[in-house]
Write a protein that binds this DNA or RNA. Structure first.
Lengths: 104, 104
DNA sequence: GAATCACATAAGTGTGTGCTTATGTGATTT
DNA sequence: AAATCACATAAGCACACACTTATGTGATTC
């Protein structure tokens, strides 16, 4: 089940930080480390977890590996969230429109 | 930070199952155990984690404790998801309407 | 008010997870 | 082709986590 890998991936604050950085623009693993006080292997391992969770995807560029946000993971979260739309506050009800689209 | 407790809570498959059961209707801790092969203390501990994450809330009813889905947790996830709207596939773009509401 | 019921908390244990250092791999440079 | 660079993988370790059994707590029943 994909959900498990997604939520486990996001359960770690360091990985959420990495994901947030990538959301500001794609970059390689070294660039991601800037200002993060994290070892190179640790970064590599975190990126591996995020990849398996479909939250991030890679693209080889010479000897660099460029990372970017993978929409697939976000879509799966949205889909999970959608299952509980009955419990959303009324002011978020607009989201129903979205979910009708996604159910197909 | 609330996000951490939410994602950690959802990282466990047993807790997601509990949450899903509650989404079908509120019930007490004993009813939740039905067909789940889980000890009473384990259930109690899981519910405690879900409560701290604002995914579930309790309501004392005599010697029973009724549990139900707490919309607050779901809203926080929606808010987190909203930060990355730029990466959603185009067909989910309708959600932008929702987010404009939530930004206030 | 003693027993019972529904649930919470305590304490201990095995497993998972995130980190480290060390080494491997594939691509570029000189 | 040797050295270097960017990144991945291996192995080991400290800690977190989900579980267990045992006990505590607050409400109901007889």
């Amino acid at each position: 089940m994909m959900e498990n890998e997604i939520f486990k991936a996001l359960a770690d604050p360091t990985r959420r930080t990495i994901f947030e950085k990538l959301a500001t623009g794609s970059m390689n693993a070294s660039a991601l480390r800037n200002g993060m006080k994290i070892s190179q292997p640790a970064m590599s391992q975190h990126l591996s977890v995020l990849r398996n969770a479909k939250l991030v995807r890679e693209e080889r560029q010479g000897r660099f590996v460029n990372y970017e946000v993978d929409p697939e993971g976000l879509t799966l979260i949205a889909r999970w969230l959608g299952k509980y739309r009955a419990y959303w506050p009324a002011r978020i009800d607009t989201l129903k429109i979205l979910l009708k689209d996604m159910d197909q």
